[in-house]
């Protein structure tokens, strides 16, 4: 240590430049204002587009629903261009929800398991390529999945579905009338959808699992938790909102999926629990398959069904937000 230290003011003066004046004549910097306008404008545009879509759907739907001689919501048949015009979305809504539900039930456990394995079990050298592979699967176009489903999966699934019908046929879901071919069935459609939404659910949940704070994990480890118990105590509770969001993202994709369903399902307008029998239909597949043949009213009727799909997707998302928000006070940092 040296004995002759310069006064502290001199030392400070060499370190810091003269302070800038506090008043610049403006209270908001131009950069901040430009950014606020740009980002605000972008989000406004997004809202406007959604509103315009809703308005368009509504505008085109009203004439069709007016012309409908039966109840639009409870009718299964779809004859908009015949006289009298009879059509309704009951069978479409049923098929859409049932196939998406099958897909979710099959995909979520596998996706969460895959995500857990990649994020917390796999050795690092394996985790990286695996994660990359899952991301790659998410990018495969749906028509590829549809073709794969039609030419590979459907023939492969005959055996399994025969077995299900033989052994679990007493269960309403798996009962079949005589002579089911086990080909263009609701279960097959659900399985194809499951495969399609699996990568996106897995990719999103994996990212959430990777963000589990280290102190939560260490808190569990220090209590003597095994690997599985660490996941149960720290990882899954933290990841729960993420799993729900990811599932809803997948559900959204499943609800709106068109090509794969149009290829795999033999479409008709029935409402049935029997997922091993051919038949059923969805909003999106119906629109894709019918659009080419539809006359004026038929087109409007299809758009009306599109409006219902739009509303269903919206409701699904709102419900998901509600589920996530319900336990918010338990969800994160100190309140």
């Amino acid at each position: 240590m040296s004995d002759e230290q310069p006064p502290i003011e001199e030392v400070l003066a060499t370190l810091a430049p003269a302070p800038a004046p506090l008043s610049t004549g403006r209270s908001v910097r131009p950069g901040d204002r430009i950014f606020a306008v740009l980002s605000g404008g972008a989000s406004l545009t997004l809202l406007l587009i959604i509103a315009l879509i809703a308005a368009f759907l509504l505008y085109r739907s009203i004439p069709a629903v007016r012309a409908d001689t039966t109840n639009f919501l409870t009718t299964s048949a779809w004859f908009p261009d015949s006289t009298p015009s009879t059509f309704g979305i009951a069978a479409l809504a049923w098929g859409t929800l049932l196939s998406s539900l099958i897909a979710l039930v099959l995909a979520v456990p596998v996706a969460v398991g895959t995500a857990l394995f990649i994020a917390h079990f796999a050795p690092r050298r394996l985790a990286q390529p695996l994660a990359y592979l899952v991301d790659l699967l998410a990018a495969v176009p749906s028509v590829i999945y549809g073709l794969w489903g039609l030419f590979f999966l459907v023939p492969q699934m005959v055996g399994l579905q025969t077995w299900l019908a033989d052994h679990l046929g007493w269960f309403p879901l798996f009962s079949v009338g005589s002579g089911s071919t086990f080909k263009q069935t609701m279960l097959n459609a659900g399985v194809v959808l499951a495969v399609m939404i699996l990568p996106i659910i897995s990719a999103v949940t994996r990212e959430v699992f990777l963000q589990v704070p280290r102190d939560h994990v260490e808190a569990a480890q220090a209590l003597g938790a095994t690997r599985w118990e660490v996941i149960r105590l720290a990882v899954l509770p933290f990841g729960r909102p993420g799993i729900i969001s990811a599932s809803m993202l997948g559900l959204g994709r499943a609800l709106g999926e068109t090509v794969a369903i149009a290829l795999v399902l033999s479409t008709n307008y029935v409402i049935s629990w029997k997922i091993l029998e051919p038949g059923g239909n969805t909003f999106a597949a119906n629109i894709a398959l019918q659009y080419g043949y539809a006359a004026d009213l038929g087109t409007n009727a299809l758009i009306a069904s599109g409006l219902v799909l739009f509303v269903i997707t919206l409701v699904v998302n709102i419900v998901a937000r509600g589920v996530i928000a319900r336990r918010r006070e338990f969800a994160g940092a100190a309140g």
Partner: peptide
């Protein structure tokens, strides 16, 4: 795992399980 059950640890930053109640936090171990 057994070692950590016998030798408890308290960390620098308080780390209660955020999704658990006070009761469940104490009962977790």
């Amino acid at each position: 795992v057994n070692v950590r059950r016998a030798i408890g640890m308290v960390f620098q930053k308080p780390n209660p399980f955020p999704t658990m109640s006070i009761y469940d936090n104490v009962a977790a171990g």
